[in-house]
Lab assay of single mutants.
Amino acid sequence: RRPMNAFMVWAKDERKRLAQQNPDLHNAELSKMLGKSWKALTLAEKRPFVEEAERLRVQHMQDHPNYK
């Protein structure tokens, strides 16, 4: 499986939080909310998630050198 990108790293915990706050929302609505929230973040706010995604990408390359 591919490593998570920055959005997916961020959305993993954010989706849980949103789902707890909005138990009646379907996954499609949660995804739309997550997309809008991600776009609203500044580059500085996204940076930790971008860095974690890069760390995961490098780790994935080391763990699976033949993955394409």
Score class of each variant (00 low, 15 high):
47 R>C: 06
30 L>W: 01
25 L>H: 05
8 M>A: 13
55 R>Y: 00
62 Q>W: 06
7 F>E: 08
54 E>S: 07
28 A>L: 08
57 R>K: 13
45 E>N: 03
5 N>L: 00
61 M>A: 14
10 W>G: 01
68 K>M: 14
38 W>H: 00
7 F>N: 04
60 H>N: 11
54 E>G: 07
2 R>Q: 03
13 D>M: 06
42 T>H: 01
28 A>N: 15
61 M>W: 04
52 E>M: 07
58 V>K: 13
67 Y>L: 10
58 V>S: 14
22 N>M: 09
1 R>E: 13
2 R>W: 04
6 A>V: 01
52 E>T: 07
52 E>V: 03
63 D>H: 05
26 H>C: 12
61 M>T: 12
53 A>R: 04
27 N>V: 08
52 E>S: 03
22 N>Y: 15
42 T>S: 14
15 R>G: 07
53 A>H: 02
19 A>D: 03
54 E>Q: 11
57 R>E: 10
3 P>L: 11
40 A>R: 10
20 Q>Y: 04
67 Y>N: 15
10 W>I: 00
10 W>D: 03
18 L>D: 03
53 A>S: 07
9 V>I: 13
62 Q>M: 09
2 R>D: 13
42 T>G: 07
36 K>M: 09
26 H>Q: 13
2 R>V: 07
13 D>R: 05
68 K>D: 14
44 A>N: 07
66 N>V: 11
31 S>T: 13
49 F>V: 02
16 K>S: 08
65 P>V: 13
57 R>W: 08
32 K>S: 10
21 Q>G: 07
17 R>K: 14
21 Q>W: 03
52 E>Y: 06
67 Y>H: 13
34 L>W: 00
59 Q>R: 09
56 L>T: 05
32 K>M: 12
45 E>I: 00
67 Y>Q: 05
57 R>F: 08
45 E>H: 08
39 K>E: 14
59 Q>C: 04
62 Q>T: 13
64 H>Y: 15
66 N>K: 13
55 R>Q: 07
23 P>K: 06
1 R>T: 11
3 P>Y: 09
38 W>T: 02
5 N>I: 02
49 F>E: 02
24 D>G: 12
36 K>W: 05
30 L>N: 05
44 A>M: 10
39 K>V: 02
4 M>L: 13
40 A>G: 08
3 P>M: 13
2 R>H: 06
47 R>E: 09
34 L>G: 00
63 D>R: 07
26 H>P: 15
43 L>Q: 11
3 P>Q: 09
35 G>Y: 14
24 D>S: 07
7 F>K: 03
41 L>D: 01
24 D>K: 08
3 P>G: 11
63 D>F: 07
61 M>H: 13
39 K>R: 15
40 A>S: 11
17 R>G: 03
50 V>C: 11
43 L>E: 14
3 P>R: 11
19 A>P: 02
48 P>T: 04
24 D>F: 08
52 E>A: 09
57 R>V: 07
55 R>P: 02
13 D>S: 09
37 S>F: 05
29 E>C: 02
23 P>N: 01
5 N>M: 02
27 N>K: 10
65 P>D: 09
27 N>L: 11
43 L>V: 12
40 A>I: 07
46 K>S: 01
66 N>C: 12
44 A>P: 08
38 W>C: 03
10 W>S: 02
28 A>F: 10
